[in-house]
C-alpha cells in the first residue's frame, strides 16, 4: 500500500476546512486536494512544515505507512 495521507482526520480534529488550510499553508487548493486524495507523488519538506505548523501536529499525524 505504501504511504497514506491522513490529512482529513487532522483537519477534522482541528475543525479546519481545506480552503482555510490552503490559505494558511500557501499551497493551492488543487495541490492540497492532490495531497488529501493520496495522488501526490512527493511532498516537499517546506510544505510539510507549513501543514504541521497550521494543524499544530507532527508529520506522523498526517503521514502513515501501511503495508
Amino acid at each position: 500500500m505504501g504511504i497514506v495521507v491522513d490529512l482529513d482526520v487532522m483537519m477534522a480534529k482541528r475543525k479546519m476546512s481545506l480552503n482555510e488550510l490552503s490559505e494558511k499553508v500557501g499551497v493551492t487548493l488543487s495541490n492540497l486536494s492532490i495531497l488529501k486524495n493520496g495522488k501526490a507523488k512527493a511532498v516537499r519538506f517546506s510544505t510539510l512544515v507549513a501543514i504541521c505548523k497550521a494543524l499544530e501536529c507532527q508529520p506522523g499525524d498526517i503521514l502513515k505507512y501501511v503495508e
Binding site: 499551497v27 495522488k39 501526490a40 507523488k41 512527493a42 510544505t47
Partner: peptide
Amino acid sequence: QAENELTV
C-alpha cells in the same frame, strides 16, 4: 514532468 506536477 508528471512527478514534478504531483509534488506538493
